[in-house]
């Protein structure tokens, strides 16, 4: 393998990793604000993929319109699901487990609803942009650069929202202390609803960008959910910046690991990395112990 090929693989790892980061940051946001582990998060990714497919391929809507519509739909779906299930469970005893169990049920339910609606055929979306960029012998398709660009933009927007907007302050305050936030006038249940919607939309962005590269199937949520979990363990469960760094790291580690072994072992590498991190630093690579 030449050096430039190796660099290409690292860059590809970063690009895929940026998508892992978006999925993982959604899981982190949900866990961070309401302490709920969302096992149905992969399904937001899967449904996001189908939404884009339906709009672009079936209805012929241009991608630059289809993707925002898909995001909005994913946001509404996420918020609706939160309102109908998690919202009630959080008010009961034993919610830490019951919320995991209900999202497991939701995951199966949504997966198989997609199977009924769209069938088991593998679907894909045409490239949004074509062409290849070549620099010093390193060749990267434009589509992949677009993915990276969208990821950077999304992360920048999310960082701005969390740091500098009223909503972002409310999300951060609620995630740090729900009662104290209520006392200053922040309605936790509405923040939870919005956070769930945002997280679902983050999954849908990743799905929309990956749709031209990776096949869309009713089962495409599960592997990406597992990747998201690895990401949040690496970054510290509940940390948004941790999830971003964790995603990029996972992408690169996978890319290098696959070079050393073969593609079938990609997921084993990811999980082994996760278990190793849990063993050594259960609070994540970047978080603090408390």
């Amino acid at each position: 393998m030449t050096f430039s090929l190796f660099i290409e693989q690292i860059i590809n790892g970063l690009i895929i990793g940026s998508m892992y980061a978006l999925v993982g940051s959604g899981i982190a946001l949900i866990y961070g604000t309401m302490r709920v582990l969302n096992l149905a998060h992969g399904e937001f990714y899967m449904l996001g993929g189908y939404l884009v497919f339906f709009l672009v391929v079936t209805c012929g809507v241009p991608a630059y319109l289809a993707i925002p519509i898909a995001l909005l739909a994913a946001f509404l779906l996420g918020a609706l699901i939160q309102r109908l299930t998690i919202h009630y469970l959080l008010q009961r005893e034993g919610w830490a487990f019951s919320t995991i169990a209900v999202t497991l049920g939701l995951s199966i339910f949504l997966q198989n609803s997609a199977l009924l609606l769209f069938g088991e055929n593998v679907q894909s979306v045409p490239y949004y942009v074509t062409g290849i960029v070549e620099f010093a012998g390193v060749r990267i398709p434009m589509q992949r650069l677009l993915i990276l660009g969208v990821a950077i933009l999304t992360i920048a927007v999310m960082t701005y929202v969390l740091k500098a907007t009223r909503l972002g302050w409310a999300i951060r305050a609620t995630s740090q202390d729900r009662d104290a936030a209520a006392v200053v006038g922040i309605p936790a249940s509405r923040i939870y609803l919005i956070t769930f919607g945002i997280a679902a939309a983050l999954g849908a962005i990743a799905a929309a960008m990956m749709a031209p590269i990776y096949a869309i199937t009713p089962w495409s949520g599960l592997p990406i959910l597992f990747k998201g979990f690895v990401v949040v363990i690496l970054g510290g469960l509940g940390s948004f910046p941790g999830a971003i760094v964790g995603g990029l790291l996972l992408g690169v580690v996978e890319a290098v690991g696959v070079q050393l072994t073969s593609t079938e072992w990609r997921d084993v590498i990811a999980f082994a990395l996760m278990i190793a991190v849990i063993w050594v630093r259960p609070w994540g690579l970047f978080g603090s112990k408390s």
Partner: peptide
């Protein structure tokens, strides 16, 4: 809100 600054904490008092 332990991870936020003093100023952010105080400003949140006027959130509503």
């Amino acid at each position: 809100f332990g991870a936020m600054t003093v100023r952010e904490n105080i400003l949140l008092g006027a959130y509503h």
